[in-house]
Amino acid sequence: MKVILGTKIGMTQIIGEDGLVTPVTILQAGPATVTQIKTVDTDGYNAVQLGYGQGKNLSKSVSAHVKKADETLSPKILKEFRTDSTPELKLGDTLTVESFELGDKVAVTGISKGKGFAGTVKRWNFQESRNTHGFKGNIRRVGSIGSMYPQKVFKGKRMPGRMGHDQVTVKNLVIAYIDKENNILGVKGAVPGPKKGIVTVEGKE
């Protein structure tokens, strides 16, 4: 099962033997502990729940739940991954970067950077109004958002609002660097989210 939780460290470059420079994102990937196994017989579907990081002040219910896998476990993040067949993993197993290989294609999921409240020019790439003689008002205003009929604003209308801080998945990224001793992955290209952000790395079996 090629899946792991990690933390985004930042970006750097790797120079290959042929002299080509490859931009990579460095991830602190794992170790992640299996905290729960779900099967069709017990839960109606197959899935594996992983715990990652070192959390503080866990609730009694969560603390009791993870201690079934390991008495010393106190994860910061719990995340579930569905599988097509019954998982071969066992409760308490540890997943590391050893399950990945150079050249593997992976999908990385993270929370994008939050931009705060933004107008339509920045958020939706709207064009500014003409700033010519006789024009009055703000050239960055929205303009018309509806008509006389049906006398309402349709849901999903592109308007000012909160920008960023959304779950984003980037597919078909290639693993270009692996450090098994320190559990570090280098993924070719950019990964969503800020530094120290939690990301999910899922590979194709």
Rank of each mutant, 00 (worst) to 15 (best):
K155T: 11
R130Y: 08
P31T: 11
S112T: 08
R141T: 01
K157H: 01
H65E: 06
S129L: 11
F117K: 01
D104V: 09
T33H: 06
R141I: 01
F154A: 04
G114H: 05
G103N: 13
F135S: 04
P31V: 08
Y45L: 08
G146K: 03
S144F: 08
V62M: 02
E71A: 09
S63A: 13
K115S: 12
A69S: 05
A64Y: 04
K76S: 05
K152L: 11
G30A: 15
D84E: 15
S63K: 09
G103Y: 13
V106S: 06
G53H: 13
V142M: 09
I37Y: 00
T86R: 14
D84K: 14
K122D: 09
F81H: 03
N125T: 01
G51T: 05
L89E: 07
N138A: 04
T33M: 06
N46I: 08
G156W: 03
K122C: 06
I77R: 01
F126A: 15
F135I: 00
K76I: 05
K38N: 08
K38E: 10
K122R: 10
Y45R: 03
P31Q: 04
D41K: 15
G30Y: 11
V153M: 04
L50Y: 02
A118D: 10
K68F: 01
G55E: 04
T96R: 01
V142K: 00
K157V: 08
Y149D: 10
Y52A: 00
Q49R: 06
N57W: 14
K68V: 01
V34N: 02
S144N: 15
L95C: 06
D84Q: 15
T109R: 09
G51S: 07
L50W: 00
S59N: 08
T96F: 07
A107Y: 01
E98C: 03
S59L: 09
P150K: 05
N125I: 09
S147W: 02
D41R: 12
E98W: 11
F126S: 06
L78V: 02
I77Y: 10
H133M: 06
L91R: 00
K56T: 15
I139S: 07
G44N: 05
K56Y: 05
